[in-house]
Amino acid sequence: MRKFLIVLLVLAVAGLIGADRFGETRAETEVARQVAAQYRLQEQPSVEIGGFPFLTQAAGGNYQRIDVVIGDYTQQGVTVQDVRIRLDSLNAPLSELLNGDQSNVRAKTATASAVIPYGVLQKGVADKGVQKVSRDGDDMLLEGTFAFLGVSAQVGVAVSLEPTAKGIVVTPKTVRASGIQVPLDLVKRDLTYTVPVTGLPMGSRITAVEPVDTGLRITGTAENVDLSGVTPQTTG
Rank of each mutant, 00 (worst) to 15 (best):
G71V: 12
D136K: 06
Q102V: 09
G77I: 10
Q76N: 15
I66P: 01
I70P: 01
R84H: 15
V83F: 13
D101C: 08
E48S: 14
Q131H: 05
T234H: 09
S103C: 05
V125P: 05
R205I: 04
M1H: 10
A32E: 07
L9C: 07
G60Y: 06
E96F: 03
L55D: 01
D82M: 04
T111G: 07
L55K: 02
R135A: 15
S160F: 09
V212A: 02
L161E: 08
S46N: 11
A114C: 07
T207R: 11
S89T: 10
S160E: 12
V187Y: 00
V69S: 13
D127M: 13
D190K: 13
L9A: 13
R84P: 02
V169M: 09
A36H: 06
G167V: 06
G150I: 14
Q154R: 08
D82S: 11
L94S: 06
V130W: 07
P232S: 10
K166V: 05
V133A: 12
P211G: 08
D20A: 02
K173R: 15
L55N: 00
Q44M: 13
Y193H: 08
G129N: 03
Q42N: 09
I218K: 02
I17D: 03
L216V: 00
T79N: 03
G137L: 08
S134Q: 06
V125N: 01
V133R: 04
I206M: 15
V47R: 08
A114S: 11
I70T: 03
L55S: 05
A177C: 09
T79F: 12
T145E: 13
R135I: 12
E162N: 06
P201F: 01
A107Y: 11
G137R: 05
R217K: 15
Q64M: 09
E43A: 12
G167M: 05
T164N: 03
T145W: 03
G71K: 02
R40L: 13
A36E: 11
I70W: 00
S113W: 08
I85C: 03
D190C: 00
L121H: 10
